[in-house]
Design a protein around this nucleic acid. Structure first.
Lengths: 229, 229
DNA sequence: GTTCTTGTATTTGGATGCATTTGTACTCGC
DNA sequence: GCGAGTACAAATGCATCCAAATACAAGAAC
């Protein structure tokens, strides 16, 4: 019997460590695990029905990704980010993402552009629902990463993904506090249009401004919120 | 008995995981562990007289740092970097490092500048010795990180450190293959002089060119070596 | 001789249990 | 009532043992 089949039919087995890391990453990004929360190895192990070993390894990985902070002998916490932290993260994005977009645009297919457009339409419909803030983050990342996907720059992508993950909680906050949803959506459409016209300079410049503006308005919103406390 | 002493005499206790990670990172950067080598958990555990648990956690961390690649159920290897990988790493550096230098220069003290000069002088003397290629890497990073130290941009620094670590083996290769030592040294002195004069634009521009040139010449050297194989 | 199969050895992945460290509340002394 | 010391509780760190997966090699079928 010949069992050789298409790769996509393979059962996607992953280690428990990876699975736990994915779950925790998701929960931290979504805010299910709030900022400042302590990540107890025992509690996580019990919750996911695994031993503490894969949990510990997952925590090490998330620490290296910048998503959590491990204090020796005292466990891991989800750090609260200061306005200057936010500024850093968005500055890094503003520097790296236009560069990768530059390399991706010439290789983007019509299909890629259509997929990106679909994501934007889904984004607009999701905004009608109650839990739009949660799904927004994933759709936003889907849109951005789709645009970068053809660059084939794995090191860029890893860093960009980690930085986006670290800041995504706050990106949602920015949209909520500053009512920046409409503007972000508008800019997304314009960026996509530049890509469709293969206008590399235009797309990259607008993308940089898009990120810089989001970072700046978020930083100001955070400072105001902090001042009012 | 009063054991309270000055802080610097405190026994620097760190977890075995961190210690193993530091050791492995050092060995990979120095090339003691060559590229393509498999990192056997058992062998490392025996070598350092620890169990495999801290070794596994250290490997996870190094994987997240981008220094090694873990294949599920098949262990970890030190990846060989292609010319395009090298181009990526140096492009990332060329984008991030001038930005952090910009924020650091205004806060650099005279003492900082003197320390950097000391590093450059040590660099020149080390070049006389046989094992100069090894010590060069550390001194190069010391110089660069000293210049960035006052920026207080931890996210930038983490990424920059990881990217430098990933490419350091090859940076040594570039100096060796292309005889770029003299030029690099010359550029270091010029960058330091710009910093001393608080010429932010000049320093950042030269730093960017310094990194870009090193990346470009290394990429070409690698392509030639690959073509001759 | 080549290829496929099967068994074994090696290696990684995970669970349990113990030691060490840290946090906390209670008590003792003043 | 207040502070210091101490005992207890809880969490992390690490080692040992076991299970699962992979790599390798020897042998059988063609």
């Amino acid at each position: 019997m010949n069992l050789s089949t298409a790769p996509e039919s393979a059962i996607p087995r992953q280690s428990l460590t990876s699975a736990v890391a994915d779950k925790l990453r998701e929960e931290i990004i979504r805010g299910t695990i709030p900022e400042g929360a302590q990540l107890r190895q025992d509690a996580i192990a019990i919750q996911y029905q695994v031993s503490r070993i894969p949990v510990r390894e997952a925590l090490r990985q998330l620490d290296a990704e910048g998503l959590i902070t491990i204090v020796p002998n005292r466990g891991a916490i989800v750090p609260a980010l200061s306005p200057t932290d936010i500024e850093e993260l968005f500055t890094i994005r503003a520097l790296l993402e236009p560069e990768i977009l530059k390399h991706s645009i010439p290789r983007l297919t019509e299909n890629d552009l259509e997929e990106a457009a679909v994501v934007l339409r889904r984004y607009e419909t999701e905004l009608q629902h109650e839990d739009h803030l949660f799904s927004w983050g994933r759709l936003n990342w889907q849109f951005h990463s789709l645009l970068y996907s053809r660059a084939e720059r794995p090191h860029f992508m890893n860093i960009i993904r980690n930085v986006n993950n670290s800041g995504e909680r706050y990106t949602r906050l920015q949209l909520y506090l500053t009512h920046g949803i409409a503007r972000a959506n508008q800019e997304h459409h314009e960026i996509l249009e530049f890509c469709r016209q293969r206008d590399i300079a235009g797309a990259c410049k607008l993308l940089r401004q898009h990120i810089q503006h989001a970072g700046q308005s978020l930083k100001e919103a955070l400072q105001q919120r902090r001042a009012s406390d």
